[in-house]
Each structure stands twice: as structure tokens, then as C-alpha cells.
Amino acid sequence: MDIEAFREYCLAKPGTTEDTPFDEETLVFKVGGKMFALTNINSFEAGINLKCDPELAEELRERYSCVLPGYHMSKKHWNTVLPNSCVPDALLLQWVDASYQLVADKLPKVQRLAIGV
């Protein structure tokens, strides 16, 4: 997977926006103004940060060598996944879906209804 495919996948999710709030290299995807994925525009291979259920986050780190504690994020709630390494793209995209859903589920009901989630 390349950054463009990743970007298109994230942006296809209802209510998703992209932004570079930290610097011009860090691309952040949000739903309802809350982050669910981020990556480096210039070095996509360095990792994608995804929100994750804390218990599952630990399990994935133990099971996959390309899943690390979230870089510059809460290690409890975020994982960094090295794309194109030890997991197929389909599984990575499932984790993107799960990250998006975790964040979307915590939005106020009115906001969820407005964006269609």
C-alpha cells in the first residue's frame, strides 16, 4: 500500500477530514474533529498511528512484529503499524476501520447522525 491508497481509503469514510495540525509532514485524519489515523507524508513506511482498544493494542503488539506502541501518542490507546511489512493490506485496512469506529462511536449522537455513522 502507498500513502495515496491509504489517504483515499481514510477519506472515503463518512465525515472524515484531513489536516496537518502539527507540522507540514504529519497528515492527520479525523472524524468529528477527533483523530483516528496519522502518518508522515514524506516517510509513509515509517508508520501509521491508529487508535486501538487498549487490550487489543497489547495483543496486536505481541502477535505482530510490525505493530509497535504508538509513536508520540498514548501507548495505551494507540499503535504504530509499519505498512507493507508483516500484515497484509486487508488487515491493515480492518484496523483503520476499527480506529475510525472507536472514535466515531464516542462522538455525540447528534454529530454521529449528522455525518451518517
Results as ranks from 00 to 15, higher is better:
A37N: 05
T16D: 11
M35S: 10
V96F: 09
V117M: 06
P14I: 06
L11S: 03
E58A: 10
S74D: 15
A104Y: 02
D97F: 04
F36P: 10
P69W: 07
A12L: 08
A5H: 14
V28K: 04
V103A: 09
C66V: 01
E58I: 06
L60E: 05
H72N: 02
D105S: 06
G32W: 00
I115E: 02
K106D: 14
S43A: 00
A98K: 13
M35I: 13
C52G: 05
L91D: 12
S43E: 12
D89L: 13
K76A: 13
P83L: 06
S65G: 15
T39A: 08
L38P: 02
S65P: 12
A12T: 14
P69S: 11
V28W: 15
F6Y: 12
R112K: 14
A90R: 13
T16C: 11
A5W: 03
N79I: 08
R7M: 13
V67I: 15
Q111Y: 00
E45F: 01
K75N: 13
P69V: 10
E25P: 05
V67L: 04
N42M: 07
L107W: 05
K76G: 14
D53K: 04
D89G: 15
A90N: 12
G116W: 11
L11H: 09
L91M: 14
E55V: 09
K106R: 15
K75Y: 12
L60R: 03
Q101G: 02
M73R: 00
R61Q: 08
L82E: 02
G15V: 10
M35W: 08
T80L: 11
D23L: 02
R7I: 13
N79F: 08
V96Q: 10
L60C: 05
G116R: 02
V87S: 06
K30D: 11
S99N: 05
D89N: 14
L60S: 03
P14T: 04
L68T: 11
F22V: 09
N84F: 04
E58K: 08
